[in-house]
Design a protein around this nucleic acid. Structure first.
Lengths: 194, 194, 194, 194
DNA sequence: CATGAATGAGCATTCATTCAT
DNA sequence: AATGAATGAATGCTCATTCAT
């Protein structure tokens, strides 16, 4: 009479609960016990059954969260033409995600920042580089070639834009208008002099 | 009640070791045992003797780190005239600190981001607002009044600048030239049109 | 959620060991380590696995002990008729329990008296009121209505009888004859003048 | 500039604080740390300085408390004539002490019941026998010889009376009228038939 | 697809006590 | 008459993980 679900569904259930717990309590206070509570499962054993270890679960959290947001980002940015317009749209959409998908974004940051190997070295941070800056850096380089953007280091600019957006979440400032403000800011910072 | 010389020295020794461990292993992997190892002390009991609890120790870590950096910042920025020059100097000095005081800065971030109350709420993050943006926001507002800076939301701008600097540490990009690049970027972003 | 046979057996094993330790060493000297020794278990971890915390274990100790004794009491008092006879029987049986179930009784007293909340307030004492005086107080009231017993405060009398019995354990006096002596005493103290 | 006090005064200060803590938190939750807080002292070191060890302190607590109450009892019972009157007075005064000297009485019970040797054996309980029953038992025996009291085991009766009084504290019942009620009860229980 | 039972290692914290002034 | 500094042992509890079904 037990409700059984497929492997995939169970994994999703666990990952979703993990995302919530990480977002709410932070990585350091997240444990199998807390996740199991949130998911309404019977024992932590179920997590160990579906995931090789904590590392495996965190990887799944990251892949799920980044995948979800990447898809959304793609959908929202589709059909934009013009580098400057695209940059503006990118910034505004990502700030919007801060409101609609705060938990996913928090989870990504928490895991990327805090999940470490035994020696303290970050494990996932490198994997996030593409999500954080890759897409944008390519746009910036292309725009420079086209003369739309001024001369600047595209790697630094891309990283700065991403940091600025993530910083919005931490600032505690109201988010409405924040996207436009940031878009204006980076428009001035990137625009070709002419 | 009296703070003796020995007491102060011991506390400093422990706090310094804590800063190192936090910077190296991250907050989540930091424990009294690791700190005691690093400091070369005999047992964790000594930490409990000098600090009421973990919270107390983390507070000391934060106060020490922020205090040290604030002093340095003051010293380095003294005598600057002109809002634009001051902004540029601030950015460059803070990026420089990323190299000379990486551990203090990492410790601040780790503790502020990860040290939480039982319910997951951040405990120290609010206290850092002044260190992160207060000083700068005041400069920006003043500069706007003087017509040196363009119209923009000073709170958003201050937060963006701070996030950009902190983002530099996380980027993995080489730091030489990073400060100048950022200074240029925010010069363009803030400069009055005229 | 389901309580299995093994689970129940293990819990019983732990609770029984706890009762013994509490009876022998007293509440203040009782620890998970002592209980584990007595039960012949491998580590205190096993206790934490089966009981949420110390409070949970102590509650189980109390419920088990009181339950056991209550059943015995019921069995031994069944079929008594007449209030005075019942009172006499109750006292004699309870004094008898002091010899046959000394550990259970000691455990009850130790836990009820000493297990406290953080602020020092008793946690279980109120729960024991029924075991200690409830049954008897009802008998006394009924006997007064029937005119078998004299006028006196039934709450005070019930409490006095229970205290007298418990005091027998602490007195160090030989218990044989103690029950009869007490029964006589309270017979005189309760009997209707007529 | 430090306020220094004499040995005797300091010991008294510590013992008084200990009595309060024991009465409030119970023996099990009493520690040097809690006593030091209550007394407003600087460190537990001060206790170790004035008392050889915990045992020594507890002994002092007991001697002080019992001494104080014994004196009071003597003063209040002085000049009573007649065994029956004396018994009644004794009970009423001791119940009265429950209100005026609740902390001393609680401390006595807590220490006597809970302070144990390493092997769990009570250390002080025997010493309290005289305070609890000695005085009264002598009165009862004498009264029996004089024919004022009926035949009963004076040791059991004395222990029952003491337990009844101590039970009043634990009952949670209102204490006004409790002394008279108990006095009446034991008057009936002891009175010679004639 | 899932579970029950158990575990070794680690956690921060508290205990009374001691050494050296 | 007192104190500052330190300590070894113990406390209850949580961690992710594993064995055996």
């Amino acid at each position: 009479m037990q409700v059984t679900v497929t492997e995939a569904a169970r994994r999703k259930q666990i990952v979703d609960a993990a995302i919530e717990v990480i977002a709410d309590l932070g990585y350091a206070k997240t444990s199998f016990a807390r996740i199991v509570e949130r998911a309404g499962l019977s024992s932590t054993r179920l997590i160990s059954y579906h995931f090789a270890d904590k590392n495996d679960l965190m990887m799944a959290v990251l892949i799920t969260s980044v995948g979800t947001l990447d898809e959304l980002l793609d959908a929202r940015l589709e059909g934009r033409t013009g580098r400057a317009e695209m940059l503006r749209a990118y910034i505004e959409v990502r700030v919007e995600l801060l409101r609609t998908h705060a938990k996913h974004l928090r989870a990504i940051t928490e895991v990327a920042d805090n999940h470490r190997a035994e020696d303290g070295s970050a494990m996932f941070a490198p994997l996030l580089t593409d999500f954080r800056v890759g897409r944008m850096e390519r746009q910036l380089r292309q725009g420079q070639r086209e003369g739309v953007f001024a001369e600047f280091d595209p790697a630094v600019m891309a990283n700065t834009i991403s940091s600025a957006i993530e910083g919005a979440a931490r600032s505690g400032l109201p988010l409405d208008g924040y996207g436009r403000e940031l878009a204006d800011l980076f428009d001035r910072a990137t625009r070709s002099a002419q």
